[in-house]
């Protein structure tokens, strides 16, 4: 089992030091084997939390710590964090011309393996074909340039393809359901569910209960005004679907 701990995390946007903190003391522990859902109104810090854990250089940690198995990762660059087992399925994946999807995924897998033990090409292709098949992605998407000209839904599916090929310990999935039709949503959810196990934990950021019908969370957290104001089980998400966030106030978590 691996443990990801967020302790009293305060975060600012690096380019806007005069602006107030976006995250104001987040405490959260995710163990592998657990599925956490992070919900809350727009613009309250959910993506900032995921990006900061991943190591996006646009954000500045002003207080607190992020630890994997007790060791701080704050001074580690984004690629080191990835190799330690973190993965972020992004809301807006970048498009990279000239690098094929397959080539990139292989480079990502090989970055985790020693130089003298790179993944054999046939084994890689087999695994890629099977995973793409599972996600119902057309074959030619392996040879297309990374996210280049992909539709919104294709990009999201491609994030899950990378997740399933790289097999991280912790996946943060940022609005992986946006832009997906109902069939695609089910396929993507099945992909994530197939990762479930003792060595995999995830934090799913979503606005909609619908995704959580397919990927049933163990914990649901509500993030508002830069703080986690409530934590509950899967039923909390269902409740919110009826009541909305408006009635929830900072400080309620301790009440």
């Amino acid at each position: 089992m691996t443990k990801l701990e967020i302790k009293d995390l305060h975060v600012k946007v690096k380019a806007e030091p005069e602006h107030p903190e976006i995250l104001r003391g987040i405490n959260l522990t995710i163990n592998t084997g657990e599925i956490h859902a992070l919900m809350g109104p727009n613009g309250n810090g959910k993506s900032t939390l995921a990006e900061t854990i991943m190591g996006n250089p646009a954000y500045l940690v002003t207080q607190g710590d992020i630890l994997i198995d007790g060791e701080s990762i704050l001074d580690k660059a984004v690629d080191e964090r990835a190799r330690l087992g973190l993965f972020l399925g992004m809301q807006y994946p970048a498009e990279i011309n000239g690098v094929t999807n397959a080539e990139f995924i292989r480079a990502a897998i090989n970055a985790r393996r020693p130089k003298d033990d790179q993944i054999p090409i046939m084994q890689f292709i087999k695994q890629l074909d099977a995973t793409m098949d599972q996600l119902k992605m057309p074959e030619d998407m392996a040879d297309r340039y990374l996210n280049q000209g992909f539709s919104g839904g294709e990009k999201k599916r491609n994030e899950i393809l990378q997740l399933m090929m790289i097999k991280p310990h912790f996946a943060m999935l940022d609005e992986i359901d946006s832009g997906l039709d109902i069939d695609a949503l089910r396929i993507v959810a099945e992909g994530v569910n197939s990762m479930r196990g003792k060595e995999f934990g995830t934090m799913i950021i979503t606005h909609y209960q619908r995704l959580l019908n397919y990927i049933v969370p163990d914990f649901v957290h509500i993030l508002k005004d830069g703080e986690i104001i409530e934590t509950g089980g899967a039923e909390l998400a269902k409740e919110l679907e009826k009541t909305g966030y408006e009635h929830l106030k900072v400080g309620d978590a301790n009440a």
Partner: peptide, 9 residues
């Protein structure tokens, strides 16, 4: 950032 977030240096 995107490429590095998958572990490549």
């Amino acid at each position: 950032y995107y490429l590095m977030s998958r572990g490549v240096s």
